[in-house]
């Protein structure tokens, strides 16, 4: 088997939240626990979940914008977390990030041209003329006019700013882009423009994406594989149509059912899922989802379910699937390794 472009293994990150007088009380938040997945070259991988589930932290940990506590992130086999500052700089050319908020992601005091040339100049990529040519190309690629280079961010709309943010991510010609809610702040019609743009880039450059989103529709449209996260852990992973059409984990099912569909005949099953997302400060014992789960069993309260590979490309962490579905072999084989 060929090495995937990105291989994330057992990634964990805890934050210490300080509260009370002078930060006297402190509590540990397990933002990301034991997260593993891999992304092939040219693949769009989705990370989906509700706020506070750790999907953004995971994305930033991949780029080492936050330092993970443990685990490994391999980019074409090279360990990102072990890289020294010089190696890290070189690695960062190969993976980039696109942000949610197009108003916060561009420096208001710098022209678009400055924003786009700076990365190339810093990495010493060619002469001034070559850099200018590259900026011209990348602007054209994201559908912006060349004269945008002389303007400041406030002269553009949200959708245009998001295009510029994508251009900045592209200018170093990365192999992987982490896109953190890239269309959530945009209007519906602009969302579609950006998604079509990203899809085109993915196909033209064989770019890999880690798309982080709370919107199942966006993930279904853009990704081929998806992981569902709940309170810092991946609860289910698999190919996109299967996960959304036949979800295994009760949480995935609840998320799917609660997602509004623009079709009045397919009324969402409203309010079925009781209760609220528990605080990451004190996640429930056992399976974190058990207080809200309609299928809760005794074991769920005490033991976190282990990962079960129910099919070669599909896995779930839920006691409902103790030995997997028709794939006892892989489940039984797993502990042996």
């Amino acid at each position: 088997m060929t090495t995937p472009l990105l291989d994330v293994r057992n990634l964990s990150k805890t934050f210490v939240a300080r509260r009370g007088f002078m930060g006297g009380e402190s509590a540990v938040v397990h933002a990301v626990s034991d997260v593993s997945f891999s992304v092939a070259a040219g693949e769009a991988f989705g990370l989906v979940g509700e706020s506070g589930c750790g999907k953004s932290t995971t994305g930033r940990a991949i780029l080492r914008l936050v330092e993970p506590d443990s685990g490994a992130v391999l980019l074409k086999g090279e360990d990102v977390l072990a890289a020294n500052p010089r190696r890290l700089r070189a690695l960062r050319r190969r993976m980039q990030i696109v942000f949610q908020d197009p108003y916060s992601s561009l420096n208001p005091r710098r022209t678009i041209g400055q924003t786009l040339t700076e990365p190339m100049a810093v990495h010493g990529l060619g002469s001034a003329r070559k850099i200018l040519e590259a900026v011209r190309m990348v602007l054209a690629e994201v559908g912006m006019p060349i004269d945008a280079a002389n303007k400041y961010p406030h002269e553009f709309s949200g959708g245009q700013r998001q295009r510029i943010g994508i251009a900045r991510a592209l200018v170093l010609r990365p192999e992987l882009i982490v896109a953190d809610e890239p269309v959530s702040a945009l209007d519906v019609s602009i969302q579609a423009q950006i998604l079509v743009l990203l899809r085109g880039l993915q196909q033209r450059h064989n770019l890999s994406f880690v798309l982080i989103s709370h919107d199942l529709g966006v993930v279904r449209h853009f990704c081929s594989t998806v992981s569902v996260m709940y309170l810092g852990r991946i609860v289910e992973r698999g190919p996109v149509p299967a996960i959304f059409d036949e979800p295994l984990h009760p949480y995935t099912r609840a998320l799917r059912n609660a997602s509004p569909v623009p079709d009045p005949k397919a009324k969402v099953i409203m309010g079925k899922l009781e209760g609220e997302v528990a605080s990451a400060l004190s996640p429930p014992s056992g399976c974190h989802f058990h207080p809200r789960c309609p299928h809760v069993m005794e074991i769920c309260r005490g033991v976190y379910p282990s990962w079960v590979q129910v099919a070669p490309d599909r896995g779930v962490a839920c006691h409902l699937y103790p030995a997997g579905i028709g794939s006892t072999v892989s489940a039984a084989a797993a502990p042996g390794r």
Binding site: L88, M95, N107, R168
Partner: peptide, 26 residues
């Protein structure tokens, strides 16, 4: 806290560059 500072880090900018070029003018 704004995203363009994080973007600068992702692009491999040094802390000095981020402070002088990106924060100071603001």
């Amino acid at each position: 806290e704004r995203d363009f500072v994080e973007a600068g880090r992702a692009l491999g900018f040094s802390h000095l560059r981020i402070m002088v070029v990106h924060i100071l003018p603001n």
